[in-house]
C-alpha cells in the first residue's frame, strides 16, 4: 500500500496505539503529523521511528479537546505538509484501565463522564470541523476514529470511558452519512485490550488470560496490530466503505 504524497494527522500519537499507527503510515511513505498533549520525549521518539521507517514526520503539541487548539493543530499541519488526506482521531482523556481500581457506577459522577465525552466526542467534533474545509474543497478525505470493542461487549464496565466511546460510534456513523455524498469517508476501528500501553499497564495477568481464553486468535492485541486495519480503511482498497466499524481483537467480538 503506497501512501507517498499523502498527509496523515494522528491525534494522541506520541506513544502506544497512536505511535504504532504513525509508524505504520510512515512505513508506507506518508507524511505524518504526530500530535501529543504532554509527553514531548515520546512524541519525538515516534517522529524518529517514522523517519527511520521511511516517512516524514513532525511532532505537534495540541490539546485536541479544545476547539481552538484543534484548529491550530490542523493549520500547522497544513502549513507543514500542504493538506490533510487522513485524520486518525486516537486521543482520549487520560484513563487507567484497572478492573480492581475502576470506579463503580455509584462512584462515578457526571464530571467523569463529561471528561471522557470531551476527550472522545468533543475532540472528534473539533478535529472534524477543523479538517473539513480542506477536505470538502478537494472533495476527498478520510476520517478514522478509534473506539474500543468494549462498546459491543463491556467485559469490564468502565462506565465513563465506554459510554464516551459508544457516543463516538454514533457520532461517526452520522458523520459518514453527512459526508459520504461529498466524497469523505468516516470509519471506526475498535481494538480490544491492547497491551502494553500506558493506559493498560495496570491490567493484571488473570484478566489477560481470561480474555485470551475467549479470543479465537488466543492472544491480546499489541499496538502494531491496530495499525493494519487503520491503514486499510485509509487506503483506496476501502474506497467503498464508510460508517463501518472494524473490531481488532482477535475475534473476541464478532459482528
Amino acid at each position: 500500500m503506497d501512501f507517498a504524497g499523502k498527509t496523515v494527522l494522528i491525534t494522541g500519537a506520541g506513544r502506544g496505539i497512536g505511535a504504532a499507527i504513525a509508524k505504520g503510515f510512515a512505513t508506507e511513505g506518508a507524511s505524518v503529523a504526530v500530535n501529543y498533549l504532554q509527553d514531548a520525549t515520546s512524541a519525538s521518539a515516534t517522529v524518529d521511528a517514522c523517519t527511520v521507517a521511511g516517512g516524514t514526520a513532525l511532532a505537534m503539541q495540541a490539546d485536541v479537546t479544545d476547539a481552538g487548539d484543534a484548529a491550530r493543530l490542523v493549520a500547522a499541519t497544513q502549513d507543514a505538509f500542504g493538506k490533510i488526506d487522513v485524520l486518525v482521531h486516537n486521543a482520549f482523556a487520560p484513563y487507567v484501565f484497572s478492573p480492581e481500581k475502576r470506579a463503580l457506577f455509584w462512584e462515578t459522577d457526571w464530571a467523569a463522564f463529561q471528561a471522557q465525552i470531551d476527550g472522545s466526542v468533543k475532540a472528534a467534533h473539533g478535529m472534524a470541523r477543523a479538517v473539513l474545509p480542506d477536505m470538502l474543497a478537494r472533495a476527498e478525505g478520510c476520517i478514522i476514529n478509534i473506539a474500543t470493542n468494549l462498546v459491543e461487549r463491556p467485559v469490564v464496565p468502565y462506565h465513563d470511558y465506554t459510554t464516551a466511546k459508544s457516543a463516538l460510534v454514533g457520532f461517526s456513523r452520522n458523520l459518514a452519512v453527512e459526508l459520504g455524498p461529498l466524497g469523505i469517508r468516516v470509519n471506526l476501528v475498535c481494538p480490544g485490550l491492547v497491551y502494553p500501553t500506558a493506559a493498560s499497564r495496570a491490567v493484571k495477568e488473570d484478566l489477560k488470560d481470561a480474555l485470551i481464553a475467549q479470543t479465537p486468535l488466543r492472544r491480546i492485541a499489541t499496538p502494531a496490530d491496530v495499525a493494519g486495519p487503520v491503514l486499510f480503511l485509509a487506503s483506496p482498497w476501502a474506497g467503498f466503505m464508510t460508517g463501518q466499524t472494524l473490531y481488532v481483537d482477535g475475534g473476541f467480538v464478532m459482528r
Binding site: Y195, K208, I212, L217, R218, R219, I220, T222
Partner: peptide, 10 residues
C-alpha cells in the same frame, strides 16, 4: 505452533 506464535506476540 500457533500457541507459541501467540506467546511470542505477548
Amino acid at each position: 505452533a500457533r500457541a507459541l506464535d501467540a506467546f511470542g506476540h505477548r
